[in-house]
Amino acid sequence: MIKIENLHASIDGKEILKGLNLEVKAGEIHAIMGPNGAGKSTLASVLAGREDYEVTAGSIDFDGTDLLELSTEDRAREGLFLAFQYPVEIPGVSNINFLRTALNEIREYKGQAQISAKEFMAMVREKSAIVELDSKLASRAVNEGFSGGEKKRNEIFQMAMLEPKLAVLDETDSGLDIDALRIVANGVNTLKSDQNATIVITHYQRLLDYIIPDFVHVLYDGRIVMTGTKELALELEEKGYDWIKESIDA
């Protein structure tokens, strides 16, 4: 699905990612954990094509295409989805209008016909139920006046609507209470198939009780320094990140 090799990326001349390697296959869920400042959000931003970041070396192969050659919108159209850590409020643009525009632009890119209004509304009803998002929220302005939990549910709702090949969840658990966390995790699990893959970026192990990862990676100082299974997440939860820092820095 995605193969990242020797990725180096910097912002304002400061190198954040320093030779990151990661391979994710269809049907897998990978968790990326790490202390603050390790480069977790930078990885998410680079994958989505945020222009503030400069990729100085390395490659990203996304299902046979060179991801780094694509614009942000073309990455989304090829099936990459980023659930934002801080979803943006966009006053005046309705969630529905926004999603229909997105869906139709993706369809056009793939040479498919536009979605009919009826088909679209049926899809909205079906997908909003997955994350228990009130249909009223679906028709309000994008994230405007949404609570933290509603914003994150809205991210997963969008993911359900756009049916990506690879979803990157950037700290989706931050700011969520346990009920919202369960709803969001349940949404992600419902959408999982052997055709798609998920990268869960998180600081805490808590989310991984609900979204069970196949692999857990530790990102530290711009590189993946350790890979294990879900037990590694529990160990990190118990022992913190210091022992990793010490073993690497030593």
């Binding site: 919108e73 980023l82 934002f84 966009i90 005046g92 643009v93 209008n97 997105a102 632009e105 302005a141």
Partner: peptide, 30 residues
């Protein structure tokens, strides 16, 4: 136009042109 909002819309598959128009319509809507 808000760069963050533009990026958010583009990250969902909307072209820069389409995103700009959505934001301008929203700006004028009131």
């Amino acid at each position: 136009l808000d760069d963050e909002a533009l990026f958010y819309l583009r990250a969902r598959g909307i072209s820069e042109r389409g995103a700009t128009q959505l934001l301008l319509t929203a700006f004028m809507s009131d």
